[in-house]
């Protein structure tokens, strides 16, 4: 999977000089201080979730005495629950999330390539339109999607309500949108000289796109893939209307239903479920991080 050209060592001006410990502290110490503060801001609300997940029978925000009780009962009982098929939800979420991420990134990249590299009438209007379409208030989206999948499912049962494919298709409806614009901006920074050179070497447009350009825009592909993965992992509004059977549902839908009736909701089980549900996102980010930040810079390809 590694890129053909090794990542270029970056030249970092200030730090490239030899520095003593004091300067180093001044150079990076404040960064850590700021980073720790920001981490506290980012993490604090999540500590409540973690604390609740470790406390059987705990409430979500009822107490500020975090981590008074620590045990893994919630995790084990959720994983072995008959009522909540957690592992099935987990698998469904991964299948739907990964498929959506890959497919929507590809679809978006294809369109972004056309918008960036080709000149055609309606290009600007098209670009504008795909972003504007996403701004429509989604008040009736759920009703509309329900009716639409009902009709589709009538003819193609495997694409209708209560199918993973149906849900994935709905998600792909958003593939052409602001993420396309994000990729479009990135494509624009890749010099057209690369395309030209490849063309002179006799490569067709498809080959240029798939074998050369896609590699050069790896960072943004990784970002977009991560964003769509997270979106489909977290969506419960659309998914709860499409996926009816408990065994077909995703983590977000299943977990949300656990607590949607707030009277006597099993918050601690829910929190344990949410903690485990965040793991795929973290792993995917770990995996994609090197593409996001370690990818080739445009200038590295001469």
């Amino acid at each position: 999977m590694s890129a053909p050209v090794a990542p270029k060592t970056r030249v970092v001006p200030v730090a490239s000089r030899r520095v003593g410990p004091v300067q180093r502290l001044r150079a990076t110490g404040w960064r850590h201080l700021v980073a720790l503060l920001l981490s506290a801001f980012a993490l604090f609300p999540l500590l409540y979730v973690l604390s609740t997940s470790l406390n059987p029978g705990g409430t979500l925000t009822g107490s500020n005495h975090l981590f008074q009780t620590v045990g893994f009962d919630n995790y084990t009982s959720l994983l072995s629950s008959d009522q909540y098929p957690y592992l099935t939800w987990f698998r469904n979420s991964l299948v739907i999330g990964l498929t959506t991420a890959v497919a929507s990134t590809l679809i978006g990249a294809l369109a972004a390539y056309a918008f960036s590299r080709m000149r055609f009438t309606g290009r600007r209007m098209g670009l504008l339109a795909i972003v504007l379409v996403q701004m429509f208030p989604q008040l009736l989206a759920v009703v509309a999607i329900f009716l639409l999948l009902l009709q589709i499912g009538d003819i193609f049962p495997s694409l209708g309500l209560n199918t993973h494919l149906g849900l994935i298709m709905v998600y792909l409806g958003g593939a052409l949108g602001v993420n396309t614009y994000l990729m479009y901006g990135f494509f624009n920074t890749v010099p057209t000289a690369i395309d030209e050179a490849a063309k002179i070497d006799g490569a067709g447009h498809a080959r240029i796109f798939f074998t050369i350009i896609l590699r050069l825009v790896a960072p943004i592909l990784a970002v977009v893939a991560l964003l769509s993965f997270i979106f489909s992992m977290n969506d419960f509004v659309i998914a709860s209307v499409v996926l009816v059977d408990v065994d077909k549902q995703t983590l977000a839908v299943g977990l949300y239903h656990m607590v949607s009736n707030q009277r006597g909701a099993p918050w601690s089980l829910f929190a344990a479920g949410a903690v485990m549900a965040s793991i795929p996102v973290v792993i995917l980010f770990l995996f994609l991080q090197k593409y996001i930040v370690g990818g080739l810079t445009a200038g590295a390809v001469k």
Binding site: G108, M118, V133, L140, A144, I145, G173, G174, L176
Partner: peptide, 27 residues
Amino acid sequence: MPAKYITPGLVFLAVFQVFTILYTFYI
């Protein structure tokens, strides 16, 4: 050529997003 690249996304967009908008207009 551009249509070759844009069509996949456009089909999904038209079916799912545009439908929602048209439905809202209809309602």
